[in-house]
Computed example of a mutant assay.
Amino acid sequence: MDMKFIKVPDLPEPAGHYSPAVSANGFVFVAGQLPRDAHGVVPAGIDAQVRQAFANVDAVLRAAGSSLERIVSVTVYVTDIDNWPTVNAAYAAVLGNHKPARTIAVSPQLHFGCLLELQVVALA
């Protein structure tokens, strides 16, 4: 099995012992992406956080030679299920007609006070 550990120059280095993504066997496995920009700033509001998290996913996928259009599965972690209608609307706005498999999970607390986190699998 051929594995490649992906580095993303546009995002902060991970603080823990992990890679932002690993490419293996034709897939890119993206580690959970919080809605923090390159300077560590988390935007206010759930809509802006969805868009920032997807911008981070996009940067990771591009670094791996993939793209948002090649996503096959997304896990969305939210701190409050009441935010789901806004999350779903922003998610649809970002992905358009592309509809990968998706799971939503409630996580009562995420790092840095973030309201959501995205974990993605895409085709390489």
Rank of each mutant, 00 (worst) to 15 (best):
M1H: 03
M1D: 05
M3K: 12
F5S: 10
F5H: 10
F5E: 11
I6K: 04
K7G: 02
P9V: 00
D10C: 11
D10Y: 10
E13N: 12
P14W: 01
A15M: 10
G16V: 11
A21R: 00
N25H: 11
V28L: 05
V30L: 07
Q33E: 13
L34P: 10
R36Y: 13
D37I: 01
V41W: 10
V41H: 15
V42G: 09
V42P: 10
P43C: 09
P43Y: 06
G45T: 09
D47G: 08
A48T: 07
A48S: 14
Q49M: 08
V50I: 15
A53N: 05
A53H: 04
F54W: 07
F54T: 01
A55Y: 04
A55I: 05
V57G: 07
V57E: 06
L61W: 03
A63F: 05
A64E: 02
A64F: 00
S66A: 07
S67P: 05
S67N: 06
S67Y: 01
S67R: 03
L68T: 00
V72D: 03
V72A: 03
V76C: 10
V76E: 06
T79R: 13
T79L: 10
D80K: 08
D80N: 13
D82M: 14
N83S: 10
V87F: 05
V87D: 02
A89V: 14
A92Y: 10
A92V: 11
V94C: 02
V94P: 02
K99R: 07
A101F: 00
R102S: 05
R102K: 13
T103H: 08
T103V: 15
A105L: 15
V106C: 13
P108N: 09
P108K: 07
Q109T: 06
Q109G: 08
Q109S: 13
F112Q: 15
F112H: 14
G113E: 13
C114A: 13
